[in-house]
Each structure stands twice: as structure tokens, then as C-alpha cells.
Design a protein around this nucleic acid. Structure first.
Lengths: 227, 227
DNA sequence: AGCGTAATTTAGGGGAACCTAATTCTGTAG
DNA sequence: CTACAGAATTAGGTTCCCCTAAATTACGCT
């Protein structure tokens, strides 16, 4: 039995993807069940069962049959390391290479498994050790510290409330492009003007324009209320 | 049957590595036999046989049993595409991120399989469309054009000859570090002062110093004689 | 011409990561 | 309290890429 110490044990790309997905599911409350994992990774649930066994054997997660899956300390470290890479790469591509923000996600998704730690650190240094990626997500430190506060979304705001957009979900380039068109980007302030009933569209004031967004999209824009 | 047209057919990392290796063996004269390939890729010869069959089925190489292997036009394109990526990545890392030249090779070896064409082009643009990588190797164009002239090495020079170092082999970081210490880098001029007999060490004048290098190393430093 | 050696290929396996189909388990609704 | 839907797992299979050991094949040398 080897006690791991500092040196990362070289995880495969798929393994890193599982750990990232589990981390994110854990954070968003869901207990990281086989089906959710499968959906998020676009993989058949049966395949997840197999991988989950292997991850548990490697001590990266704990698994209670028919319950869910949970990261161990070492799994969490690995997940955060991958997330750090991903977000630094995204930020670097945007800032240093003028990569369009709706396309950095896919590129980073592949690069995060191929970059050495040294390269990632050099990229971070080159752009001034950023704290957030282009979508507003916080970047974990080398040591695995990360701001884990949860933000509410536009859909949680009441009419009249003013809030600053902090972060948008980066899971679809189309959505990002659309939000950019509307001017809804991390940093801008919005005010809720109107909410249609029955989970209907929300009208917000942004910049000096008035925009209407559906509730599904509203739930993917995270904000911090302003006093 | 699908006629490929422009769009790259998504080759796996290992496949790209084989094609690169075959391209380089073809260029250096050797007929790209199973054993040479195996040695270069650090893989068992038996494994090469299997992969060679698959590559031939995909039309990337032709294979005459017990003879050797040869790239088809489409294999050549794929090889040059990978080589372009590799060399641009190396150059970018060196120039944009101050990556040490004896370490870029390994990093590029992994990144070349993960970067999109768009990213590679953006990197090339950011550093001014370089023609050569940090070791002096020519960078193929997007269209697959590349300077394929062969250069002689220091070991081919006669006593008294003056030549410009154009390129050094990048296959070992240690060697690169050592050559850098000696001041033997692409761009510098050298003059052969003395050659010990029986393939012995070669004494050269470089900068305003006198250096002695073994013949094996001398064969890995490529030069262009100066009038 | 024949023979041995070196190069190559075949035979047989293994692990990682995926799949579909079949089965088992669990919690809940009637 | 039982039965059933839905979640999860097992069974069995595939592809890719690697391995070792055991044939083959080619070729140079006597």
C-alpha cells in the first residue's frame, strides 16, 4: 500500500471528468447518483456503475450501493486540481489569445487533461493569477482552496430587486452567445422589472435596455443582490 | 465508402504518434520497418504490427508484408498536421510563456493531440507565424508545405569549415541543456578546428570559445556551411 | 543450396472505458 | 404490506492499444 504524498497519481482523462462531475453534483445538492452522473457525462448509467467501482477502489470516492457517491479527500483534491486547470485555461485563452468566450469551454475540456501543472501555473502567472474564469466561476488555488459560496440566480430575485451578475453557466456556447447579445455578462448590474406568473419569462433592466429572458435561462445566470 | 474532403477524420493520439514517427523515419532514409518504429515509439514490435494493419486499413499508410511502411498522401497530410501542431506549440510555449527549451518537447507531445486547429492557428498568429521551432525545425504551413531539405551535421564538416547551426535534435532535454551550455544553438556560427581520428571528438570554435563535442552529439547538430 | 539469425507476424491476453439487455434492489403508493 | 416503478447493478460484448511467447519469413553467408 502506497501512501500518496504530494505527487499526483496520474489520472486518466475520463477519471478526471468523473471526479469533476461528482464534485459539481455534490455542490449543487444532488447526491451524485448513478443516473445524474450518467446524464451529466452523457454516458449510459451501466457504464457509470463500472467506473464508480474503479474510482472507489482507488480511494477517490466512497460509494454506498444504491445510495450515491461522495468524493474522498483525495478525490476532492483531484477534482479541484482539474477544475483549476480548466478555469485557468479558459481564462488564458480568452485573455491571451482572444478566444471567443462561447468556445473556450470545449477547448479547455480537452486541454485540461494534457497540460502539466507547470504549464497551468505559467499561464496563470502570465495573466496575473486571475480569481475567476470568463464565466465568473471562481478559480481554485494551487492548494485547492476555492470560494464555495452559492449564488442565487435571476430566477430567485423579486420584482424591483437589483443585483450584480456574477456568473453564468458555461455548459452551452449558444446560451453564452445569446446572453452576451443581451448584455448579460459577469459584472453588469440588472434590475428585475417584471415577472410573468407560472414560472414565466422575466423582464430585466440591463445597461439602458430592457430584456426578457425565459425562466430556464434565468436559472443559469447567478447574481449577488446589491444593497 | 466515404470520400474524405477537408474535414480531418479525428485520429487518436496513438495514431498521430505513429504517423509522425513514420514520417520522420521516411525522411531520414530508413524504410520505416516494424522494428525501427517500435524502437522510436518505445513499444513492442508485435504491437506495431497490429497498429500498422489498422493504419493500412484506414488508408493512412501502405504496407508490404516484411518490407516496410510508407505514408499515403492522406497519411502524410495527417502527419504534417500533427508536426505543425507540435512545433507551433513548442515555439509558442518558448516565446509566449518563457518555457525552457529543453522542456517544451514533452509538453508539446501531449498538447498536440488536444489542441483544436483554431487554437494552433491563434498561437501561430500570436507569435507572428514563425517558420521554425525553438530547435530550428521548420514548421509546416496550414496547407502542409514544409521545407524538406536535409542538412548535414557537424560530423560531416571538414577541419577548417565554417557553418551556421540551423537545427538540433530535440529528442532529449539533457542533450539540449548541454548544447545550450556550450553555446551551440540554432543561429550561431561555428568553425571546425580539429577532428580526432576514428570518429573521435570534434573541436569547434563557437562564439569566442573553443568546445569539444563527441561525434554522437555532433551528428545531432545540423548545420549549413557558410561561404 | 541450405542454414541460421534477425525481422516480422500471429496467437493469445489484459485493462480501460464504453455499450445494450437483463436482472435486482428500494422506497413508496395504494 | 405488497407490488411496482424507477434506480442501480450485473452480464456479456466491443474497440482500442498495449503485452509476451510462439510461429513464420526473408535474407545473407558459407
Amino acid at each position: 500500500m502506497t501512501v500518496e504524498r504530494g505527487a499526483a497519481p496520474e489520472l486518466s482523462g475520463p477519471v478526471e471528468d468523473y471526479l469533476k462531475a461528482i464534485y459539481e453534483l455534490e455542490r449543487s445538492g444532488s447526491a451524485a447518483g448513478t443516473n445524474e452522473l450518467a446524464a451529466r457525462l452523457r454516458i449510459a448509467p451501466a457504464s457509470v456503475s463500472g467506473m464508480v467501482r474503479r474510482l472507489a477502489e482507488q480511494g477517490l470516492i466512497t460509494h454506498e450501493r444504491y445510495k450515491g457517491v461522495r468524493l474522498t479527500e483525495s478525490g476532492r483534491r483531484a477534482a479541484l486540481r482539474t477544475i483549476r486547470r480548466h478555469r485557468i485555461i479558459e481564462t488564458y485563452l480568452t485573455q491571451a489569445l482572444a478566444y471567443p468566450w462561447d468556445r473556450v469551454h470545449d477547448e479547455a475540456e480537452r486541454l485540461e487533461h494534457a497540460c502539466s501543472d507547470e504549464l497551468v501555473d505559467r499561464m496563470a502567472e502570465a495573466i496575473g493569477e486571475p480569481m475567476h474564469d470568463p464565466h465568473g466561476a471562481p478559480i481554485p488555488t494551487r492548494e485547492g482552496m476555492v470560494d464555495e459560496r452559492r449564488l442565487g440566480s435571476i430566477a430567485d430575485l423579486a420584482v424591483g430587486e437589483v443585483a450584480a451578475v456574477r456568473r453564468v453557466s458555461d455548459r452551452s456556447g449558444d446560451r453564452l452567445r445569446y446572453l452576451a447579445e443581451l448584455g448579460i455578462l459577469p459584472g453588469v448590474e440588472i434590475r428585475v422589472l417584471e415577472r410573468a406568473p407560472f414560472d414565466g419569462p422575466i423582464t430585466v433592466h440591463v445597461g439602458d435596455a430592457q430584456r426578457v429572458i425565459g425562466s430556464a435561462l434565468a436559472r443559469e445566470v447567478f447574481v449577488e443582490p446589491v444593497a
